[in-house]
Design a protein around this nucleic acid. Structure first.
Lengths: 292, 292
DNA sequence: CGCCCTGTGAACATCCTGTGATGATTCTCT
DNA sequence: AGAGAATCATCACAGGATGTTCACAGGGCG
């Protein structure tokens, strides 16, 4: 196996909910060199991460809402097995990657049997750690689907529900088509920022807009019609001449002078989504270019 | 590696639904010594297994209905990456463990990124291979553990009983076939969310849907027919054009203006994770109690 | 004042879904 | 093992929903 690896080889096919959406992981280790190098990589990936120097009770780990945990068993001392077992029992959905010094086959087998998802032997390349964490999380994610990310977005009178691919006003559906929904979702996610036509087009259609294409305008019109019919006292999509469109719910009622309600999201919303996908291709490229 | 591992140490107590329930795996390798030793272990575990000496097209792998595949990339030759990628793409639910000779970090990262679930470097102990396969499969299986959940799900007039693989209306069975039942179960479990065709397909068929496949539609139709016949005053499966289907019981009766009853579960429902967690810890404990 | 941009409606092409039928495969019972 | 039934995979076709493109009208901007 002497193949050379190029960026295109490794670049992952950009899936919707791609594997490399930003993850949240913790590293339980004391090897400062390892931690430093790994942290740097994690930063670049845009993953939230946290370094722990000593064993943490399961409850606290729960509270961290991690996707995965990288742990050096050496830190745990003699109670390593017990701790590992308890943690795996308490958090069956947590990805656990043991990354530790030389070990026997028996130890590795035991760790894996106790519930660890992978076992890496130090010294190891941080990139491999990341790849293995991704692999573990990828497999973990599939079942739960998007059950977790079902946060409705509100703006004015409309409620945008990604889980239903629909927008609602007072409980009744706007009956949006796929593209219409993608459009309102995109605009609403921009939280009042102006989006240029080109950007809208490339995000929805996946390729760059050719000059003179009126598709975006047409869909904006259709959306406006449906919004107007369902929620006449509000304006949602605002034209910015020569630039594009901005989404912001504005009431037309006289009494409420200037009610402006930008698209809002639940408090614990994770902002990194959009960027992460872009960052991803980027990331992958870097990953393999320098590495190895 | 000083510990000696004997089969009895690790051999799974023939648990009924344990992690080590019999798996079905294939080994794609030509290293006769390795194969022989591994096969012997697999026999003792009671796993169905099959040795392949040369790359097999994805379709055939599908037909084998495997839990996992252990593969030595050396067997695949230069097209190893391509083959791996295609296989992972087609069978997102298949556990893939690469077990191959010395490799670079880059190669391992690449393999994992392409969809492999683990990567073991030869020479390796067969017990570790087995433990890693189990680890991969354990993670994969979690969601589908329906054996224990015997809570009937109600939606409109239909009652879905996972324990009987049937749905009932007013006590009489709909006589659903296996696929039909899996479909209604999947849809109902989504609790009113829209499921995309691709997702439905990959969850029911286990591999990725090719464009133009109408299987999902056909089964939706069959389901609708049976539901319609048994419960004419309700609509259950709703089409979302260009996306997929959504399950929600809606009454057609005029008096009840807009009765919408999303799939619900009995009041005493416990997000069944509890049980599975318990079950899991249990298994794991057994597995390791004697070992090492 | 003229140019370019946007709003609008409609025609057209395309894609998607519902449906019935057919052949292949698997299962069951003898 | 073999016949028969049940189940599944696949196809072709029709109707409808959706997306795309066009032409024209109105309005902002220099």
């Amino acid at each position: 196996m002497t193949d050379s690896i190029t960026a295109s080889d490794v670049a992952a096919p950009s899936g919707q909910g791609g594997v490399s959406a930003a993850l949240r992981i913790a590293v339980l280790d004391r090897d400062s060199g390892f931690i430093q190098v790994l942290s740097k990589r994690l930063d670049r990936l845009g993953w939230e991460h946290r370094v722990l120097a000593s064993p943490v009770p399961a409850d606290e780990v729960v509270a961290m809402r991690l996707s995965a945990l990288v742990v050096d068993l050496a830190v745990l001392g003699p109670q390593a097995w017990e701790w590992l077992e308890r943690l795996c029992g308490a958090l069956p959905d947590l990805g656990i990657v043991v990354c530790t010094g030389p070990s026997t086959v028996a130890q590795r087998v035991r760790g894996l049997r106790l519930g660890a998802d992978d076992w890496i032997t130090k010294p190891c390349h941080p990139e491999e750690v990341i790849a293995r964490v991704q692999s573990v999380v990828r497999r973990r994610r599939r079942p739960s689907g998007r059950a977790t990310e079902t946060k409705p977005v509100m703006a004015g009178e409309v409620e945008i529900r990604s889980d239903r691919f629909q927008a609602f006003v007072a409980g009744s559906s706007l009956d949006l088509t796929r593209r219409e929904f993608e459009l309102i979702e995109l605009l609403a996610a921009a939280e009042g920022r102006v989006l240029e036509r080109e950007e809208i087009y490339s995000r929805l259609w996946g390729y760059t807009m050719v000059r003179g294409d009126r598709s975006v305008d047409v869909f904006v019109r259709k959306l406006r019609q449906k919004l107007e019919k369902a929620s006449p006292r509000w304006r949602y999509i605002h034209t910015h001449f020569g630039i594009g469109y901005r989404f912001a719910a504005e009431s037309l009622d006289v009494d409420s002078v200037d009610v402006v309600v930008p698209a809002s999201v639940p408090a614990d919303w994770d902002p990194a989504r959009d960027q992460s996908e872009l960052a991803r291709a980027h990331e992958d490229r870097e990953l393999t270019s320098d590495a190895l």
